[in-house]
Design a binder for these strands. Structure first.
Length: 749
RNA sequence: GGGCGAUUGGCUCAGUUGGUUAGAGCGCCACAUUCACAUUGUGGAGAUCAGAGGUUCAAGUCCUCUAUCGCCCACCA
């Protein structure tokens, strides 16, 4: 949808008229943010403050008819002095008591102004006397209204001085500032200039310094609209993720200012406001007609000299209707035959579940959609608001096209691939944290895509015709699978469960990383390597295929292209997009079995470690002896001897029946097994001892903490039972392991 | 002026309600290239979780203060 579509535009005008008739839209002369470059009014949100290093200038305003007497005022914008219509002091400020009510002369324009007293004046700032320019400053405007001062504008819309600035007319505002300072200095009226840090609004589009400018604009009265929107968030009908943005939202809403919605630009929805040429000739407040269509004549005087307001609406004045105006609210679909469908769709999609956006959009759009939602639909527009991080460059600056510090996504796509871009971005965006992006981050995504591709190739190349027709759950129920296949299924469904939970709780990076870890380090590194010798077996065929296929389906939202491509190769038909996300099969998750498999993998790793430490070449096969300290471990090793032999490249695996160190071996002590690797070289007893000594030291340290914890009566009393049990078991296991380590050390001596 | 975030191995960062010996990617060291993948594999080194205090049986995780960096808001004349 496009907000300039005819029906959408109609909704925008309808909203304007409704709010006007309700008294929530009004026209008025106020100080607004004016961009002299774009020559348009801006809302407060479109004029963000940036820090500036300026000067505070101290100017002398002579007292009329009192030779040599003057008041010093401080200002950062001396050029506005030409429009001064008062000087204000605090009524309690003793220094200035005698001046209140006196007349001063504004230098350079020789205007006579009064010294007024107002408690708004801060006695501590500057000199305690402030020049008042009601047409060029919001505070001064309020003072001007309160004290009935004149409003003298000294600038034209283009930021040049106007005829009220007399000698300075036609100068640019900043040029005028310099000349004015020179002239004041010449006359001895510039007392001093001090460096002064300040901040000023800047145009969001062109970064020009905003001029607070007195101008007739249209406004939305926000306070009444804000009320229900505040309530909804406070009551938890709408939730921000991460939660901390709630405070940002509420703070803004509770201090909300009226919204300037008219813009003097040429693109946008024109205001549905018409003026009668005749009424207005006598009275500017008459002859205003707010109507969706152009009236034939003025209802007040009957004149047909009607013209439409030239201004257009703030772009967000159309955007804030998005959640419902996209569904042909309130008039129904242009094609009336589709009208009932459009009504159903509005009902179905409003409110929607989640809005995902950037932090700076909270004020522009999120808050306003919520307000419009309540005002026009009587309900929230969405339940969750997920605020993602901002992408910053290495210096911490927000990446933006206008700053030119962007990494162009198209370049990344060319160099690393689309999936790489997508996956890497997801995986580094921890909940709502800003990301400092550099190109290297995309290598991980690219490598992962490559890994998925190659693993799929391996599976598909080895897949036999008709091997995968069976239903996995049925098969799992009937057949007795080996530990490796049961392990990968358990791990797959554990991962799936985790990924689903992560997505539901808006932890996308956790989901991506869980998938990455599973697919690469479990499916590829262990599972595919383990099954290679038995890849032709029917059960393995089915499991490896199903796990791959289901993995691709979960991976698809993260890496749509590579998964689709592989899917096509697998099925040659429908798109992977049509596939639902797999469901968790709890019956296949077996944590005990996962642990057992893990312990086999550690035996393999330990043997590899020993091989590496005595520099046995990879292709050379070795003899290994093992002693298991528990019956279950013995059984486990026995049953999986082939797997161990294969991945650790063993010539033989001998199971010992006493725990004595065989000759010419190096050893490794594990939780409940000792592993010995036979080798023909010289045993470097010192190196071997050092290894054990270090491990023993660590273990002693560990045991000490466990012991002291278990001796602590408070711990035993207050900690949950399961924690105490766990600690007890850990201590027993570690003590046993330490004993064996020490025995091993003794044997080496 | 107010609010928020960050501070964890050489670098970039995870770490959900406090509870196994704090993880990952990159980088580094050693070894490996017919056998899906060198955009790879195997093994390894590397962290007093910014500092101080506190709560708790138990703190990277909760509280207070401090330091450094960053962001947002503000009618800062």
């Amino acid at each position: 949808r496009f907000t300039m579509d005819e029906d959408y535009s109609s909704a925008v005008l309808e909203v304007f008229v409704r709010l006007y008739e309700k008294g929530l839209i009004y026209q008025g002369n106020y100080i607004i943010n004016w961009c002299p470059r774009c020559q348009t009014a801006l809302s407060d949100e479109e004029a963000p403050h940036r820090d500036l290093q300026g000067n505070l200038y101290y100017l002398r305003y002579p007292v009329k008819d009192e030779r040599g007497a003057y008041i010093v005022v401080a200002t950062t914008r001396p050029e506005t002095m030409l429009g001064d219509t008062a000087v204000a002091v605090n009524p309690r400020d003793k220094r200035y008591k005698k001046f209140v009510g006196k007349t001063l002369i504004v230098p350079l324009v020789d205007r006579e102004i009064k010294v007024i007293a107002d408690s708004m004046v801060d006695t501590k700032f500057g000199t305690g006397a402030v020049k008042v320019t009601p047409a060029h400053d919001p505070n001064d405007y309020a003072l001007g209204k309160k004290h009935g001062l004149d409003f003298i504008s000294v600038m034209r819309p283009d930021g040049r001085m106007n005829e009220n600035a007399k000698d300075y007319a036609d100068m640019d505002r900043f040029e005028a500032r310099e000349v004015i300072l020179e002239d004041l200095k010449e006359r001895g009226l510039l007392e001093k200039a001090e460096p002064h840090a300040l901040s000023a609004g800047h145009c969001y589009r062109c970064h020009t310094i905003i001029e607070p400018y007195l101008s007739k604009q249209w406004f939305v009265r926000m306070k009444p609209l804000a009320q229900p929107a505040i309530e909804a968030v406070k009551k938890g009908k709408i939730n921000f993720y991460p939660k901390r943005w709630t405070k940002v939202y509420l703070n803004w809403m509770e201090n909300i200012q009226d919204w300037c919605i008219s813009r003097q630009i040429w693109w946008g929805h024109r205001l549905p406001v018409y003026y009668c040429g005749d009424c207005r000739a006598d009275d500017a407040s008459r002859g205003i007609i707010v109507s969706k269509t152009k009236p034939d004549s003025c209802p007040a005087c009957g004149s047909s000299r009607i013209t439409q307001d030239e201004d257009v609406l703030d772009t967000w004045f159309s955007s804030w209707l998005w959640p419902f105006a996209t569904f042909y609210w309130p008039f129904g679909a242009p094609d009336k035959s589709a009208d009932s469908r459009s009504k159903e769709e509005l009902k179905y999609f409003y409110p929607t579940s989640a809005l995902v956006t950037a932090p700076e959009i909270i004020f522009f759009w999120v808050a306003r959609m919520i307000m419009a939602g309540f005002e026009f639909m009587g309900d929230i527009p969405f339940k969750d608001v997920y605020i993602h991080g901002t992408v910053r460059d290495v210096e911490g600056k927000k990446m933006s096209k206008s700053l030119g510090n962007v990494i162009d996504p198209l370049t990344i796509i060319k160099e690393y691939g689309t999936d790489a871009l997508r996956f890497s971005l997801i995986s580094i965006t921890a909940q709502g944290q800003d990301v400092f992006l550099s190109k290297e981050r995309f290598e991980q995504g690219r490598n992962f895509a490559n890994k998925i591709w190659n693993a799929s190739r391996l599976v598909l190349l080895n897949l036999k015709e008709g091997a995968v027709k069976t239903d996995l759950c049925e098969f799992f129920k009937k057949e007795r699978l080996d530990i490796v296949n049961r392990w990968i299924l358990s791990r797959f469904y554990s991962t799936l469960k985790e990924v689903r939970q992560d997505i539901e709780s808006y932890r996308f990076n956790e989901a991506a990383n869980a998938l990455y870890g599973f697919f690469w380090h479990e499916f590829c590194d262990w599972y595919l390597e383990l099954i290679k010798p038995s890849i032709q077996e029917a059960s393995t065929q089915l499991v490896m295929y199903k796990v791959l296929e289901k993995s691709l389906r979960i991976l698809h939202p993260f890496m749509p292209f590579v998964t689709e491509e592989i899917w096509q190769k697998m099925h040659a038909t429908a798109s992977i997009m049509r596939e639902p996300c797999p469901h968790v099969q709890e019956q296949m998750i077996d944590k005990r079995l996962e642990k057992q498999a893990q312990s086999i993998f550690s035996i393999i790793s330990q043997i590899r470690n020993m091989r590496s430490s005595v520099e046995i070449r990879p292709e050379q096969k070795v003899r290994v002896s093992a002693f298991a300290h528990s019956r279950s471990k013995l059984k486990l090793i026995k049953e999986n001897a082939a797997l161990i032999s294969n991945l650790a490249r063993l010539e033989s695996l001998e199971l010992l029946d006493c725990d004595e160190r065989p000759k010419a071996t190096i050893s490794s002590v594990m939780e409940d097994a000792d592993i010995y690797l036979h080798f023909s070289g010289l045993l470097d007893a010192e190196k071997e001892s050092a290894k054990f000594a270090q491990k023993a030291a660590q273990l002693r340290e560990y045991i000490k903490t466990k012991e002291s914890r278990l001796q602590n009566k408070e711990f035993l009393k207050k900690a949950p039972q399961e924690i105490v049990e766990k600690e007890t078991q850990d201590l027993a296991k570690s003590s046993d392991e330490l004993k064996r380590l020490e025995k091993m050390l003794n044997e080496l001596r």
